[in-house]
Amino acid sequence: MPILVLAILAGGFAIFSVAVAPFTGPKRWNRAKLDAYECGIEPTPQPVGGGRFPLKYMITAMLFIVFDIEIIFLYPWAVSFAPLKGADGQVIASGLGVFALVEMVLFIVTVLVAYAYVWRRKGLDWD
């Protein structure tokens, strides 16, 4: 709810800025000005619907997904790893214990297997 308030504020500001811009500025039409900027040379025609980009970026995206997923699992694990103690030192909730440690080691090792594979197969090298 408070986030919504802030979002409205920020969004209102941003949209206002974008909306007001055409009216505040002058208008001086110039063909070259409206071309895509390529340091002065004729702009490269871009395919309609978006160009193609190097596969490299896709691989990065894939890797990101994989590791992001790892993080998804690490967070709850980290949070519930330790026993939760109240103000008086009383244990409110017990931690997951050694079991969690063992499992997480296994998990990370498994992820590292894939990581090692990608690394060795030059998946992490940029050109």
């Binding site: 811009a21 505040t24 002058p26």
Partner: peptide, 8 residues
């Protein structure tokens, strides 16, 4: 704010 709003 006072500059021209360009739409390439």
């Amino acid at each position: 704010g006072l500059k021209e709003d360009l739409f390439p």
